[in-house]
């Protein structure tokens, strides 16, 4: 009983598939991505072997130390084979702090975005608090939460909080008003609109906020672990500094970079799956 017997071919629905890609096309992104790190590595190598600086170890030394740090058996000092312990300690703070931040920021953001009174009460306060950097909170946090992991946790949480909050508010406030009209003329009115319109419409923004928040959680982990925690990548870097062991510092930096990157990729993959409907969300 179709009124239209002929429809145009579903060209728009066929999502580009990597058919017939040459091997070069497949490895090209990887090769391009490795150019800058390779150049940096080369420069580092030259700078240290030419003795432009005596304080920075050579890439080879750092590499060797990284292996010892990861599995031990070379130097057998206090840090040998402890990478996993520190990584897990940091990850638990990053993800724990991030989860706690999301737990506060999401409902708060939804409320501020939707309820004018909540916005008027909370928005000015939060706008004033926002520019205060996490580093500035360090002393207060140590007084409030003591020396140790609780303080680290709180600082990471604070770092992840604002991007989640602000993007949630933005997402909730920028829902196309036509969609509310469309929903209400279809029989979805009142509170039901919150779940059926506001939440899904705000999801891309919320997701962006979560992604930025997690990134910032990794970003502030070193500050968070300046609070005198015994374990964690931040603690390793702090120890490396006090012991003048630059190779340790560099190892910690590299691991934070890689862990943060991988963690972001996972989030992006989840996002691409969840937000397949959103044309702007293919990271």
């Amino acid at each position: 009983m179709a009124l239209v017997e002929t429809v145009p071919p579903p060209a728009a629905v066929v999502i580009e598939k990597p058919v017939g890609k040459t091997p070069w096309a497949r490895v090209k992104p990887l090769v391009l991505a490795l150019i800058v790190p390779a150049l940096l590595l080369a420069f580092w190598q030259v700078a240290t072997t030419q003795r432009w600086t005596r304080l920075i170890p050579t890439p080879y030394e750092v590499g060797e130390y990284m292996i010892d740090f990861a599995v031990g058996g070379i130097y057998d000092d206090a840090f040998s084979g402890t990478l996993l312990t520190h990584l897990i300690a940091s990850m638990s703070r990053v993800y724990g702090g991030f989860a706690l931040a999301a737990l506060f920021a999401l409902p708060l953001g939804l409320m501020i975005g939707r309820i004018p009174t909540a916005r008027m009460v909370l928005d000015p306060f939060l706008q004033v608090m926002r520019p205060i950097p996490v580093t500035a909170w360090l002393p207060l946090s140590m007084i409030l939460f003591g020396l140790g992991p609780r303080s680290a946790f709180a600082l990471v949480c604070l770092g992840a909080f604002y991007p989640i909050l602000l993007n949630t508010i933005f997402g909730v406030r920028s829902v196309d008003p036509k969609l509310f009209e469309a929903a209400s003329m279809l029989g979805c009115q009142g509170n039901a609109q919150f779940y059926k319109v506001v939440l899904p419409a705000a999801l891309p923004s919320i997701f962006t906020g979560l992604r930025l928040g997690l990134g910032l959680a990794w970003f502030v982990i070193v500050v968070g672990e300046m609070t005198g925690v015994p374990q964690g990548l931040g603690a390793v870097i702090m120890d490396g500094r006090t012991l003048s062991r630059t190779e340790l510092v560099i190892c910690g930096m590299i691991i934070i970079g890689i862990a943060g990157y991988l963690s972001d990729r996972i989030v992006v993959m989840i996002g691409n799956r969840l937000l397949a409907w959103s044309p702007t969300h293919h990271g």
């Binding site: 009209e181 469309a182 009115q189 319109v197 419409a201 999801l203």
Partner: peptide, 21 residues
């Protein structure tokens, strides 16, 4: 008194729910 399913609106800019198939 308010919007109702008996009167459906078709908007110029569609106003479809982008997250729904």
């Amino acid at each position: 008194t308010g919007p109702d399913p008996t009167r459906g609106m078709v908007f110029q800019d569609y106003a479809l729910f982008p997250w729904l198939s």
